[in-house]
Design a protein around this nucleic acid. Structure first.
Lengths: 121, 121
DNA sequence: CAGAATCCGACATGATACTG
DNA sequence: CAGTATCATGTCGGATTCTG
């Protein structure tokens, strides 16, 4: 088993596992990762692709991911002003381990739903 | 690419991916999973193993994981009263896909930390 | 176009005290 | 032992408005 004690009593800034998990614990990050998997996108494109996200929240998420080295932000001087976001090598590496979780979710949602219904009864 | 539109505009109750990710978005669930990976544990054991978690929060987490079929709760009539928690087959299946993420975190934390320092400058 | 500023509400967690 | 009950708080996301 992993050394659990090494993961406890630490905040997200210092605990490796929590630091990484925090990149997908939000409501939108996983969608951002998937949107950027194959190609870079501009701010507005991301906003449309991801869905109902507000610009403030999108900016916040992108800044967090950029800050931790998962993606890069590139400004193309306008006008019109354009800013593109692209996954880094680390971002691509991360998506490789997180996608199985996404697929697992698709494969097992029925079971989870069944468990919920059973538990309710 | 995955069909992102299928993942948007849905709450955690109906979106497969978010429903599953919500099992590790909390501060404690991953620790609970790892603690139960090799053997079942009683409430008090879990509390000590996981660390500074309060009984209220531990109960809440365990109930959520039980409700969705990741673990089972077994009452052994006392006295003394004993309640043991054990991963289900689905729980074990899930830990298989989530552990690579944990390992990835250990392998890449240095890079994340470096990116943070660089970004700050 | 790509954000920033401000205000607000919801939910997860923490602290403390109590119980079958 | 294994929880439950209350109260307090902090962070994340949502809505709205404004700007280089």
């Amino acid at each position: 088993m992993l050394d659990i004690t090494a993961l406890t009593k630490e905040d997200a800034a210092t605990c490796p596992v929590r630091s990484v998990l925090s990149k997908v614990t939000g409501k939108w990050q996983i969608l951002i990762f998937l949107a950027l998997e194959d190609e870079s996108h501009r701010f507005g494109e991301l906003k449309r692709t991801v869905g109902d996200i507000t610009p403030r929240v999108l900016t916040e998420n992108l800044k967090s991911l950029e800050r931790d080295g998962f993606l890069t932000r590139t400004v193309h001087s306008g006008p019109p002003l354009a800013v593109s976001y692209e996954l880094t090598e680390m971002g691509h590496s991360f998506i490789k381990v997180i996608k199985p979780v996404v697929f697992w979710a698709g494969d097992n949602f029925q079971s989870i739903d069944a468990a919920r219904k059973k538990f309710a009864s």
